[in-house]
């Protein structure tokens, strides 16, 4: 076992891990941050997407030890300081961009990385960017819409009560 230290959602954390321990396992099992989900074992579903030093990464594709000293952000750190939903989270709720919620943390993290890179993406850019994140529930329609809305683009007000 080796000690690993990093900053997660602004908090310094550390723990003992095996060389083979994945970053996703460290987050879930050692830190109890179970918002990061594991949907596959081949690095292809994106449910485990987080940010490491500002970049979008699949935390099942990285060893915990590789994140030594890194700045890590997970879904648990995406809300506003007062606990209310952040901009992207709120757009997902407003536009029904989630159903079972299992892909959702990864989708939100991927969307945040996309909007940091391209502040006003087109629908095609969103779809291309999300091709590493699988959702089995939504048919992607409302996820795309939520991200368009979160970027401040007009998607109509279909569900405004």
């Amino acid at each position: 076992m080796t000690k690993v230290s990093m900053t997660v959602n602004g908090q310094p954390v550390s723990g003992e891990v095996e060389g083979r321990t994945l970053l996703s396992t460290f987050l879930r099992d050692t830190l109890g941050l179970t918002g990061t989900h594991v949907g596959c074992d081949t690095g292809q579903c994106g449910a485990c997407t987080i940010h490491v030093d500002g970049a979008s990464v699949k935390s099942c594709n990285m060893l915990a030890l590789e994140a030594e000293g890194a700045q890590v952000a997970t879904i648990e750190g995406m809300s506003n300081a007062d606990g209310s939903l952040g901009r992207i989270q709120q757009a997902f709720q407003d536009h029904h961009g989630l159903q079972c919620g299992f892909c959702t943390p990864g989708m939100v993290m991927a969307a945040a990385a996309l909007l940091a890179e391209i502040p006003k993406p087109s629908e095609a850019e969103i779809r291309r960017y999300l091709s590493g994140n699988l959702c089995r529930c939504t048919g992607y329609h409302n996820i795309v819409k939520a991200i368009l809305a979160a970027s401040g683009q007009d998607v109509g007000a279909e569900y405004a009560a």
Partner: peptide, 26 residues
């Protein structure tokens, strides 16, 4: 009034969007 026919936003979303869902593996 949020009754039958209203497109109420989903209350379960808040826990799913903040990583506070409780799935079996959690």
């Amino acid at each position: 009034d949020g009754g039958i026919g209203a497109p109420n936003k989903r209350r379960e979303d808040v826990r799913f969007l903040t990583g506070k869902g409780r799935y079996t593996d959690d």
